[in-house]
Amino acid sequence: MAVHGISLDVPRGSFYGLVGPNGAGKTTSLSMATGLLRPDSGTVHVGGRDLWADPDPIKRSIGVLPDGVRLFDRLTGAQLITYTGLLRGMDRATVADRTGDLLDALDLADDADRLVVDYSAGMTKKIALASALVHAPQMLVLDEPFEAVDPVSAANIREILVSYVGSGGTVIVSSHVMDLVQRMCDHVAVIAGGHVLAAGTVDEVRAGRSLEDRFVELVGGRRTTEGLSWLRTS
């Protein structure tokens, strides 16, 4: 069992960070929270409604960037965003407008007509993010949105997300970059081994220290020994 007994309360309009070591259960938790993976037990409530009792209406209000799933990568970048928009039931004109805007905002305009399969890892991440944004959801769930993304694009994405939260949207991101989470998020949860170790506002969780130090302290596993004694070049 990858996850057991995770209970998190994400306030509306918050910028929520989910951090944890590799294999902590972040992706599993987010999959269950977005209607991609039915939990064996427990419930997910979004805006007061039980997601798994009737997933479809709630899914329409969420934008998801899943980690580790393929995209329909034989489509071009522009086609993929259009496809997602049309699947969401949007009309053609709106989809076309937003596709152009998203490609510009994520520095992908020059690559709009290339197949996604030929994109680099960072570009793939950005096109997936664009697909998650196209229907202007009330909540965004982003699994590792900054992985492999170059610093300029990452700054652009951060700006988009911050202004989205400023306009009342809710964002949940998972990340390994503590520094980024500390600067960007207002709430954070630390999970490891399928359990919540700490959750609350960023200031509560880090308790006067840097989030990274606090994370290491909570999760444990830092070694203070000499390391690999044979891994020396001289």
Partner: peptide, 13 residues
């Protein structure tokens, strides 16, 4: 479709 089918699931088609 492989895991790309997740798009159809998450968009509630």
């Amino acid at each position: 479709d492989h895991t790309a089918f997740a798009l159809h699931v998450s968009t509630a088609v």
